[in-house]
Amino acid sequence: MSFIQRAVKVPPNSVSLEEARHRVFDFFRAACRSIPTIMEIYNLDDVVAPSHLRSVVASEIRKNSSVTNPKVIDMLLFKAMEELNNITEHAKQRHHIIGQYVVGHQGLVQDLGTKDQGASGFLKDFYKSNYF
């Protein structure tokens, strides 16, 4: 219950783009500092290095680098914070973290075999887009 209450607390909107930018960096630092804890609670030491997880977080942030509306950035930050809270509260299991962040979105299903070449785009997306 406690983590739900913490998660629904919404900070006031960023006034300017500059403030939103700073909040993104603050979030990135918070995420980086919780990486050692995450590696410990999900037993990730033998599958991934902390530097790789840092790069993954940075690339998730960079996916939205074209967003310039501070309100949208705040919304994305809220979702990111929620995700980080869920991860550090151990609300996920090991395979969630590995599937989503360690091997990446198309890590396990790669259409290299000949039988995959003929698969429809819909089916490829279906395999690929388990996580949005």
């Binding site: 930018r21 993104v24 960096f25 990135f28 630092r29 980086c32 500092r33 050692p36 902390p50 530097s51 840092r54 790069s55 940075a58 942030i61 960079r62 680098s65």
Partner: peptide, 14 residues
């Protein structure tokens, strides 16, 4: 870019 900059500083912290 600036995000890489923060990432390097975090790597140095570690």
């Amino acid at each position: 870019d600036s995000l890489d900059n923060v990432e390097i500083v975090m790597a140095l912290e570690e």
